[in-house]
Simulated assay, not measured.
Amino acid sequence: MDPQLGRHAFNLAFYFTFMSAILIPFLRRDSPEFVAAVLAFIFSLLFLLVVSWEVRREASIHRTIPANEG
């Protein structure tokens, strides 16, 4: 994954997770907005975890590849 793409994906996922987490306590539990906020939180949290896992995996791949020895 391109580092810039990973950075933007992480920022976007963190933004959506944070915003939906802030919104959840202020909504009534029987409202449709609450369901939408919870779903947004779950999916954005999953996306955040996948992006974090992918970036860590890419970083470990680059660390284990030996440099060309001249």
Rank of each mutant, 00 (worst) to 15 (best):
M1E: 05
D2V: 05
P3N: 03
G6V: 06
R7P: 00
A9C: 00
A9L: 07
N11T: 05
N11C: 10
L12D: 01
L12K: 09
L12N: 02
L12S: 06
L12R: 01
L12H: 04
A13C: 10
A13L: 03
A13R: 03
F14R: 07
Y15C: 06
Y15F: 03
T17A: 10
T17M: 05
T17Y: 02
F18Q: 12
F18C: 13
M19A: 15
S20C: 07
A21T: 12
A21G: 11
A21M: 09
I22G: 07
I24F: 02
R28F: 12
R28M: 13
R29N: 12
R29K: 11
R29C: 12
D30H: 01
D30S: 13
D30K: 04
D30F: 03
D30W: 00
P32N: 15
E33T: 15
F34H: 14
V35E: 11
V35W: 01
V35D: 14
V35S: 09
A36G: 08
A37H: 04
V38P: 02
V38S: 08
V38K: 06
V38D: 07
L39G: 13
L39W: 02
A40T: 15
F41W: 10
I42M: 14
I42L: 15
F43K: 08
S44H: 06
S44M: 04
S44N: 04
L46E: 01
F47E: 02
L48T: 01
L48G: 02
L49N: 09
V51P: 01
S52Y: 05
S52Q: 02
W53I: 12
W53E: 09
W53S: 11
E54D: 12
E54N: 11
E54G: 06
R56A: 15
R56T: 13
R57G: 08
E58A: 13
E58P: 00
A59Q: 07
I61N: 07
I61G: 05
I61C: 10
H62E: 14
H62T: 11
H62D: 12
R63T: 11
T64I: 12
T64M: 11
T64L: 12
P66N: 02
N68S: 00
E69R: 13
G70H: 03
G70V: 06
